[in-house]
């Protein structure tokens, strides 16, 4: 059973308008558990829309989406929220940490919405930070951390609920080359050592190079799907 199975997924915005916009024109895709895949494409190619649908932030107009065998393409807001909470960890380009809230509390956030008891929350959040090499930075707020450190906090937050799927949207877009490499090594490690499935959205070839599969998107369609040796 694949982790992700998209069958002929379309996304059309403004379907009721005179000039609807087709973001996804029919995408079929399977991703197995434990893969490290990159979605590449120029802006306007539909890769963001694809990521939103994969991340259960949005639902397809037509077509089916199975996540871990469950059909999720017709779920409503709160059901999608529950899926995101348990099965998906997000890492964004802009880190998206909550300001004025320290590192450990930011990492605790997903567990806040899964009714994890406070002691366990604190313990697991500290453990996730430690694994990201941030032991001792628990009490620091985002504005007291470097970009690389902030992104590590975000990755800790993505893995803390033990979600099988990590979605990273341009995770190195705001980082310098050296820090980018460090962050990408972290993803590789999470993928290898913990068996997490990682889907990376990027337009940088040297970032995509860390993955073992590159899915190229253009005009709402998958134009290339290349499996390769990762770094």
């Amino acid at each position: 059973m694949p982790l992700i199975r998209l069958s002929d997924v379309t996304k059309i915005y403004g379907a009721e308008n005179k000039h609807p916009f087709t973001a996804l024109a029919g995408v079929s895709l399977q991703i197995e558990a434990g893969e490290f895949a990159a979605i590449m494409g120029p802006s306007g190619s539909g890769k963001s829309t694809l990521m939103h649908i994969l991340g259960c932030l949005d639902t397809p107009t037509t077509g089916e989406y199975h996540l871990e065998g469950d059909n999720v393409d017709r779920l409503r807001g709160d059901q999608l929220a529950a899926i995101r909470n348990k099965k998906i960890g997000f890492v964004f380009q802009g880190f998206n940490l909550i300001p004025r809230t320290n590192a450990v509390e930011n990492v605790e956030l997903p567990m806040l919405y899964s009714n994890t008891p406070p002691e366990e929350r604190r313990r697991r959040a500290a453990e996730a930070l430690r694994r990201m090499g941030l032991a001792g930075w628990e009490g620091n707020r985002p504005n007291e951390l470097s970009g690389g450190q902030q992104q590590r906090v975000a990755i800790a937050r993505a893995i803390v609920n033990d979600a099988p799927l990590i979605l990273a949207d341009e995770p190195t877009g705001n980082l310098d080359t050296k820090t980018s490499a460090e962050i990408m090594e972290l993803f590789v490690r999470i993928n290898r050592e913990e068996g997490k499935t990682i889907i990376l959205v990027t337009h940088e070839a040297d970032i995509a190079a860390y993955s073992r599969r590159i899915i190229r998107v253009r005009d709402g369609l998958i134009v290339d799907d290349e499996r390769r040796e990762g770094r």
Partner: peptide, 16 residues
């Protein structure tokens, strides 16, 4: 708004 978006992304429901 952004904070709300982050919370929703990590699984906050409307009621939360």
């Amino acid at each position: 708004t952004k904070e709300i978006g982050i919370r929703m992304a990590v699984g906050a429901r409307g009621a939360d």
